[in-house]
Structures are given as structure tokens and as C-alpha cells.
Design a protein around this nucleic acid. Structure first.
Lengths: 115, 115
DNA sequence: ACACTATATAATCATATGCTTATATAAGCA
DNA sequence: TGCTTATATAAGCATATGATTATATAGTGT
């Protein structure tokens, strides 16, 4: 890993504050391996749809994730063009995989795959 | 760098929330290279003493820093015995050095060195 | 065009956060 | 012992945050 990408302090604290919420942190870890749409997050976190939307908006506002419409769903994915993407990845790499959450969704037949 | 130290999600978000404050994040970066006492932080951040104390308490409550009395001052330092010390370090390593803050202190003759 | 589904936004509210002022504690020193 | 300095704690307050419910927007399919 290369830790030489220096992140300005103000930006770093802004990013860390965003990641300092368990829901958003889990979202980011999930997005590291799976693009997800809003309704999947709603299922995974057992949280209201607006609550999910608002978390995603915060992540999008600073450019950590991007959205893309696929059919009737809007999928979110990690924005690897973000200037501080390496910083974010290095944090996420310390977290345990959350694939179980997606696997559970699939088991329930709730995983969206629109292709 | 070894990113294999896995930090449980709840703990990670708790740590990131603490670091998601510009004052505390700068404190931690400073402590990476210099032990500091409370009054030095007060000078550096131009912030009230209770405000500084409260930030330090939050960092201490989760064990990220430890305190040690030296003469009439209480010095804070990074707790490198913390279970998630590697995680914290890997974050701090992305931040620009803040030594200028301490150098300025010294220039003003306000650096405490009690030995 | 109409109904249905997915998502976003707005308004509201309870709780959390970070600061301030006032006060307590505790060590150093005359 | 009493004064001074360094730090911690308590109380109060303004703002931020994260949730909820209600509503708007925008595709999809009939």
C-alpha cells in the first residue's frame, strides 16, 4: 500500500466524519465489492427509505459515491475518481467484509439484478 | 504497510467519528511526533482550556491517547498499545505533518519542556 | 393518460456535539 | 498555610445530526 497520498487536514476530517457513522461506513464497505441500489440498502439496514437516501446524499455530496440509473433502479457505486479515493480505500481495507449482508439478501430473493 | 489488522465495524465507526473532528484529528497528528500538554494545545488551537480538555477526554475515553503527569503539567501521548493503533496510524500517515504548529510555539517561547 | 414503483426532498423532532462560563481539584511554591 | 498555575468537571446553550412522516418527482408498464 502506498500511504504517500497526502490528504489536507480539513478534507480528511470531513471524510472521516462521513465515515464515522456506522450506517455510512457499512455502506461504503459494501460498495467496495457490490454496487447497490437504494432499496437493497433499505432491506439490509432495516431503515426507512428516506433515511437511506439521506445517507447516500451525504456520501454523494462529497463525491465518495456516484449514482447511475439502471432500469427502474438507481445504483450507487464507489467513485474511484475521487481525489482522496486511496485514502478512503486504505480505511475500508481495515474493515471486515460485509458480503454476508448481500448474501442474505440473495437468500431472501431480494437482490436486484437488472440486466 | 500491513492492512490486515481488521477492525470491527462498530469500533471503526467510533474511532472515525472521533477523528472526524478537525481539532481532534490535528491533535492526533501532532501527538504522532510530539507529546503535548494541555496548555500547548490551548496555544496552538487558540481555544479555551475546557474545550481542549474535553477533546482530550474523548480521545482518552476510547484509549487513543494516554496522559502522564510531568511536574506541573499533564502530557498527552498516543497510546500505541491500543488494540486498533495500526488502524489509527495508517490514517494519520495520510495527513500532512503539523510540526509547523509546534515550531511556532517554540518561536514564541511557549513550548513546555520540563526535564 | 393512468397507476405503480423507486427515489428524492421537505418539514419536523429528539438527541448529540462542541463551545462557553463558572467552579472544583490538585500540584508547586512562597 | 495560602497563593498561583495547570487541568478537569459541571451546567448551559446554540447548532448539527440522524431519524421519522408526508409529499414530490421521475421512470415503467398497462
Amino acid at each position: 500500500m502506498n500511504e504517500s497520498e497526502v490528504v489536507e487536514l480539513h478534507k480528511a476530517s470531513q471524510i472521516l466524519k462521513l465515515l464515522g457513522d456506522k450506517t455510512r461506513l457499512t455502506m461504503m464497505k459494501l460498495l467496495q465489492t457490490h454496487d447497490c441500489c437504494v432499496c437493497e440498502f433499505v432491506e439490509i439496514f432495516k431503515m426507512s427509505q428516506p433515511a437511506i437516501s439521506q445517507h447516500l446524499r451525504k456520501l454523494r455530496d462529497v463525491g465518495l459515491v456516484k449514482e447511475e440509473r439502471r432500469g427502474q433502479w438507481i445504483f450507487y457505486s464507489i467513485n474511484n475518481e475521487h481525489e482522496d479515493y486511496p485514502f478512503v480505500q486504505s480505511i475500508l481495507n481495515h474493515l471486515p467484509e460485509q458480503n454476508g449482508l448481500v448474501v442474505d439478501l440473495e437468500a431472501q430473493g431480494l437482490r436486484i439484478s437488472c440486466n
